[in-house]
Design a protein around this nucleic acid. Structure first.
Lengths: 339, 339
DNA sequence: ATGAAAGCGCTAACAC
DNA sequence: GTGTTAGCGCTTTCAT
């Protein structure tokens, strides 16, 4: 089987005896075409197995129905859910998401953005608000709608939709302080580039301070199975500070590990030690006790972001930049005492 | 801020006083260009914030360094790992992966493939061996290297790399029978389109039969949190068939749910009941007991598939189709007795 | 080492 | 309702 030249419109045109232009119209369902010619064209195209060349189409029409989605990672459960929200909305439009991963590295982010922009997407959805100057410049120069997602604690290039992680941290601290916990430990990741985790932590300590409480101890991890790390870190921090009465985890996975560990040890949760995580992952439904956590409205964020892009691209309404702040929802669970 | 026309090569050409052609050469690092002009061009390009238009570039050069990766889903931990293997290899080349999701629906698969082909990718990596006739036709007509991954029990359009799921099922059955378990239950998903799970089940029952054992009971689920479903299903099947002494789960997540449930109930695992799953997810590291499972070599599959595509695209060696069968590795864990 | 001309496969804009 | 013409922004090829 020789490597064959891919089929072109011209091939379909010749096979059907209709001009290239009309073939193009039929295939794009644009403009009026008589039923007879339409049939001829469709038949010819199908028989040949013709697949339109979007590269040429995009160049000619100056339109690419692609939305660049730039996120840190796909492996921690949080972004797949955002993606679902995005797809749900874009599926109703001719737009298609294309994702690029940054792995929380600013350098990679810049590179991925450049790469994406070189395909001239119709819109951009990007996680976070902190980007290099180069990124901001490219974004502004792109001339397409941009939505920064997940976070609203900062300044957006264009639109943003997310939650306030500072506020989320404060809310959880309030809840914990209100239940009378005093000796609080914080367990998180070692990622300096995870700005949202950082903001949560800042809000958390700030609200604790207002209640006259200081973080008693902290522990950070890096890589490996989060569930296993949650166990280890919990063991370590309690070994070092046995008098802790509450553990705040920066994500649900390590929280779940901690919970499993404490339960095995026979520690009474939440009486002896209270626990809380962040994110509301589906996994938690299957745990022996429901971990107290906070839902970051991930799917909703995806939906809202996609909606902004879609209306701006389709209706071509050059809308003003929007800011949508969603309310993180606390899920009390069974690992925090309730008065 | 008026919507600005995106920059073109011409803009850089004018700004630097160098012909478009030479600018193009500098930007692509092809052909000899004097250091002086090179500097001029680079400076101008950076100052303007020029981003090359790949659409035009691809059309002119008839080359698109994109590899289409078509997989069912990103949310069950198995494909993200395959993606890592793919990226790892493609990162060393000019090729870039672009993923499309089928959600285990043949109709969607066809649609996604068509969409992808219309961008004229340099290669295609596709999960599974069972595709509609339309898909096979498109694949063959595409004229680019194709690697079907995950499974080798069947016929590939071109190359394939994966494990034999039938064999994996047989291996686990052997192990279970060898340990003297007799009353075996199977718990899986309701997905008729998950051919690999089906093949594992077939191999499993076949090998059991050779040992004079028949599946004693089965249970299927559909949607929801896999961990929670694992609990429910385990409760249900044991309620119905209290005499079961082994449970084989079609994936590790429901297996983990079952394990957690049984441990809470005070059931002795693996003495009273043995347990096994499939896939070797990282999560398992944090469980109270290590679930017996089988590693499907997902990352390796990704790597090998990407290598095939890369060599065929780059070195342009029109290599013959390859078949690479990887060995699934059984991980004995603590939920199966060991003699 | 640099430039000019001719397309790549399609669609916008206009004829008819 | 259908066809013609002229590009889209690059790269290839060939001159210089």
């Amino acid at each position: 089987m020789a490597t064959k030249r891919p089929l072109t419109l011209r091939d379909v045109s010749e096979a059907s005896g209709v001009s290239e232009m009309t073939v193009s119209r039929v295939l794009r369902e644009r403009g009026d075409v008589s039923v007879a010619t339409r049939e001829k064209v469709l038949t010819a195209a199908k028989e040949l197995g013709y697949v339109p060349n979007k590269i040429a189409g995009a160049l000619a029409s100056q339109r690419v129905n692609l939305v660049a989605v730039i996120i840190p990672s796909m492996s921690n459960m949080v972004f797949p859910e955002v993606m679902m929200g995005i797809s749900e909305v874009l599926d109703e439009t001719p737009l298609q998401p294309v994702v690029g991963l940054t792995h929380y590295k600013p350098g990679k982010e810049e590179q991925v953005l450049y790469e994406m922009l070189s395909w001239r997407p119709s819109g951009i959805i990007m996680a976070g608000l902190e980007h290099s100057d180069a990124c901001r410049t490219m974004l502004k120069a792109s001339g397409v709608p941009i939505v920064e997602i997940m976070d609203v604690d900062g300044t957006a290039v264009d639109s943003m939709v997310g939650i306030s992680h500072r506020r989320a941290g404060r809310m959880m601290a309030q809840e914990i302080a209100a239940q009378g916990y005093k000796r609080i430990g914080f367990l998180g990741t070692k990622m300096p580039m995870d700005h949202r985790a950082r903001k949560r932590f800042e809000g958390f300590t700030e609200a604790l301070a207002k209640n006259g409480i200081e973080i008693a101890d902290q522990e950070f991890y890096d890589g490996g199975s989060a569930l296993a790390k949650g166990r280890e870190m919990t063991a370590d921090i309690l070994h070092r500070s046995p008098d802790l009465d509450f553990l705040y985890y920066s994500n649900d996975m390590i929280g779940a590990g901690g919970l499993l560990y404490l339960l095995e040890k026979g520690v009474k949760v939440p009486e002896d030690i209270g626990l809380a995580g962040f994110n509301g992952v589906e996994l938690l439904q299957g745990l022996p006790k429901k971990l107290t956590t906070m839902d970051a409205c991930r799917k909703d964020i995806g939906r809202k972001a996609a909606q902004i892009i879609a209306t701006r691209c389709m209706d071509d309404q050059n809308d003003a930049p929007q800011t949508i702040e969603l309310e993180p929802i606390i899920s009390l669970g069974d690992t925090l005492m309730r008065s």
